[in-house]
Simulated scan of single mutants.
Amino acid sequence: MTESPLIPETARIGRTALVVTDLEAMIEFYQDVVGLAVQTRQETTATLGVDGTPLLVLEQDEDAPPRRREQAGLFHNAFTVPSHTALGSALERIRTHWQLDGASDHYVSEALYLTDPEDNGIEIYTDRPEAEWPRADDGTVQIGTVALDLDDIAAQSDGRTEAPPGTTVGHIHLEASSLEATRAFYVDTLGLTVQTEVRSAVFLAAGTYHHHLGVNTWNGRSQPAGGRGLAWFEFIVPDDSTLTTVRQRLEDATVAVDDAAAGIELTDPDGITIRLRVA
């Protein structure tokens, strides 16, 4: 592992981008169900977010094939909302406009799960206070899965139809073809910290967050990513000097780096594009 994390402890997830075929339907879904607002719109792209902060980019390719069963890619995008009230409102929107796939208390957070019209997984969750997160003796976070009291969550809704200020992309969860290769890339090369491990999955973070990135092999994916779905996701770093240092260290480690809008980009072992930019 690098002497200090290549992706700094102050990094966080920024935007994620999806390749979609029906741009209008996807915009409508993310507005009505997730509660995002359209910030920019062009003929084949749209950026949605909350309170001026961009969170999701939709890139239309009408000819993009569905992601094949064996391909790696997105397990879910995870939007963090700032309160139980906001989570209750999200549940109300889902029940009104869509369908809930599941719900869980993960000890560190409380989460709702659903799937968008083009089969991309979504998590909407709120964090418990960090002081309440259970940790092992070595400081790693203990993430579990137990039933969530949906009646209690629903009762806290204020009926808000838009996600409130403070909503962010808290983490990305990927499906990999090789857990070992993906873990080596994100931990040994990029310097993310292992926060917890469960059967065929690992949860990684910059700093002490419970996870900015989840990776699993639960569905036996065996081929690189492709088709509709995740186009790229990004880490936000604090300043230009950090970005310059990251680029130099990646090049020193013989990791291919390309220019991207306001930053740089690289690919993981499954061909998933990661961008880094300054806030």
Rank of each mutant, 00 (worst) to 15 (best):
A78N: 10
E62M: 15
T44Q: 14
T189K: 00
A103D: 07
N77I: 14
Q39K: 14
A155G: 09
V257F: 04
G214I: 14
D105E: 13
P117W: 09
P54C: 05
P224V: 02
D270S: 06
A131T: 12
G139D: 12
R95Y: 03
R183Q: 05
I172E: 08
H171Q: 13
N77H: 09
G207A: 09
D61P: 15
L23C: 04
D105W: 01
G35K: 11
D22P: 03
S241L: 14
T208I: 14
S157K: 05
D259G: 10
I264R: 08
D63G: 10
S222M: 02
P165A: 12
V50G: 00
L58F: 03
A147E: 10
L179R: 03
P165Y: 03
I7R: 09
S200N: 15
R41M: 12
G263S: 10
L58M: 07
D51K: 10
A147K: 06
V57M: 09
D137H: 05
R68S: 07
E234V: 06
A260T: 11
T161G: 01
L100E: 02
D127F: 11
Q156R: 15
G207I: 11
A279G: 08
R93S: 05
E265T: 13
D151P: 05
E3D: 14
F235R: 00
S83V: 14
Q42M: 13
R95V: 03
G229F: 00
L148F: 05
F29T: 00
V57S: 10
Y209L: 12
E62A: 15
Q223C: 04
T96A: 13
